[in-house]
Design a protein around this nucleic acid. Sequence first.
DNA 1: ACTAAATAGTGGACTTTGTCCACTAAGTAT
DNA 2: ATACTTAGTGGACAAAGTCCACTATTTAGT
Lengths: 144, 144
Amino acid sequence: MKDTKIAVQEIRAFNRFYTDIIGLLDAHLLNSAYSLSEVRTMYEIYTGKSVQASQIMTAMHIDKSYLSRILKKLTQEGLISKTPSEEDARASLISLTEEGLKVFKTLNKASDEQIDGLISSLSPRKLEQLVNHMQAIQEILQHK
Amino acid sequence: MKDTKIAVQEIRAFNRFYTDIIGLLDAHLLNSAYSLSEVRTMYEIYTGKSVQASQIMTAMHIDKSYLSRILKKLTQEGLISKTPSEEDARASLISLTEEGLKVFKTLNKASDEQIDGLISSLSPRKLEQLVNHMQAIQEILQHK
DNA sequence: ACTAAATAGTGGACTTTGTCCACTAAGTAT
DNA sequence: ATACTTAGTGGACAAAGTCCACTATTTAGT
């Protein structure tokens, strides 16, 4: 009982710590021409190859009208394209255009480099430990 | 070189994973009568006991005019109070009122309970491991 | 097949959140 | 005394996100 209470405090301390890290990393993207949500949307399309808006919605836990506007903007900028779904006439399948892929890869590379900077001073040993801790946390929290 | 590349991808996977967790936890606070920034502001005042606006600003990496408005709102709601600083006539020292402390503690307790829910299904052993991993990550990333 | 309910997506109207800038007042340095 | 910096406020605006109503399909129940 008491251990749990202490654990909760320590988890919350980590959450604050990691919120700051993520905020720092995100700040970088905010200086790009695209918003966080736009980049995340591109990411979802990129990894899904060809997805429905509804899939992005659930993946991002985002409002459908908000997403609709994001997709509209990305379409207008020529970064994504929609083709009507054959299974469902209400839906379309969204994919990155060549240009969209190019833009996404550039942003993605910048994010990689940022992480690179974060870990550049770590020894290979420490880096390996870091990754192991992260994977362990995911495993523990995923199976609940 | 190559290991680093893989590590970067794994760190980014963790970041996405943990961003979702934090988002989930924050969603809860968003249903409260206070915004995330307001709660975070109260937290800073609570832990600092009596702080200057500029301290909150740097702690939260927040725009000063934005903070000014948040403080104004919290003052109007009777949650915080300002007393002129004796060292610097431009600044004031901010602290939680009795009411503010009450509100903050309620929110804080709700956050605790939320974490509780997140870990309720974990064995004491797993919970201990989780906390250890979190602390290890902080140590590794802090000393860089 | 026929109606009712659910789902996919769009757009209007709005609120919340956050930014940029200019400004006052006080402190700091030369 | 003068210039520079710092603390905080407020106007004006932009960006982000929410809520609701609506159309067009698809799905389920009878």
